[in-house]
């Protein structure tokens, strides 16, 4: 049962079923990405299949991630005028989101007794994997832990994002998109695209700008807070 095509078919099947379950229920924990990851990990553990073996199939799916991110240039182009018009508030929100994102995760992890290495690995948690890994390895974090946490934060944001925003009364389309992309990078962007293309565009912007700002601020903030 570790045939490349069997594992591919299984991944598609589980995801397809998960999206149907999602449509029929309103339980936010039933995020199709989360469900598929959980079911597939259980299956692989149960059938004693290693990740390396699974990845012979998984790589064909993951391959499309980079082209999908390139494709985000299309909605970005369609909303360029609106972006230009709101540039200053967008930039201010990114500045605040980036700094608060680094400081809060570092402070809370420290208070709860995380080791220095783990704290550094968590600092870039909100940004897209390639940028986060660069930051983590440059500052002495554990790359694989950063990669794992980044995926988790993405899924977490996709699950709790919209619920959080309705509780705290964010009601503006641009602010909703920006918040999702800034907090949860491309997974948050994918979730916002499903809600509305406008949210998706601003999530894309949050993903890009927060990625750049976090790579600039993380070393400075960690130094000021005394972790480097």
């Amino acid at each position: 049962m570790d045939n490349t095509f069997v594992l591919l078919a299984l991944t598609f099947a589980v995801y397809y079923l998960a999206t149907i379950i999602r449509k029929k229920t309103d339980i936010i924990l039933l995020n199709p990405i989360l469900i598929t990851i959980a079911v597939m990990i259980c299956y692989l553990k149960f059938a004693d299949i290693s990740y390396t073996t699974y990845n012979e199939s998984g790589k064909y799916i993951e391959f499309w991630l980079k082209p999908a991110i390139v494709a985000l240039g299309v909605p970005l182009y369609k909303h360029l005028d609106s972006i230009k018009q709101h540039f200053i508030p967008i930039f201010l929100s990114q500045l605040a989101g980036s700094i608060v994102g680094i400081v809060s995760v570092v402070a809370i992890a420290d208070l709860m007794g995380a080791t220095n290495e783990v704290i550094i690995s968590l600092a870039p948690k909100s940004v897209t994997t390639p940028i986060a890994i660069e930051i983590s390895s440059a500052l002495g974090g554990i790359e694989s832990l950063t990669a794992a946490v980044v995926v988790c934060v993405g899924i977490l944001g996709a699950i709790i994002g919209y619920r959080t925003m309705s509780i705290i009364k964010l009601n503006d389309d641009i602010s909703k998109g920006l918040a999702m992309g800034t907090a949860s990078h491309a997974v948050g962007t994918a979730a916002s695209m499903e809600v509305s293309p406008i949210h998706g565009v601003y999530a894309t912007l949050g993903l890009i700008i927060n990625g750049v700002l976090t790579s600039l601020f993380a070393p400075i903030i960690l130094r000021i807070m005394g972790y480097l």
Binding site: V100, I108, S126, S175, L178
Partner: peptide, 24 residues
């Protein structure tokens, strides 16, 4: 430490980013 800091920080980032945009 990893779970709580990531969860709380994600909520904070969503709130701060959204609010700063709306206010400014």
């Amino acid at each position: 430490p990893i779970f709580v800091s990531a969860l709380v920080s994600t909520i904070i980032v969503i709130a701060v980013t959204g609010w700063v945009y709306q206010l400014s």
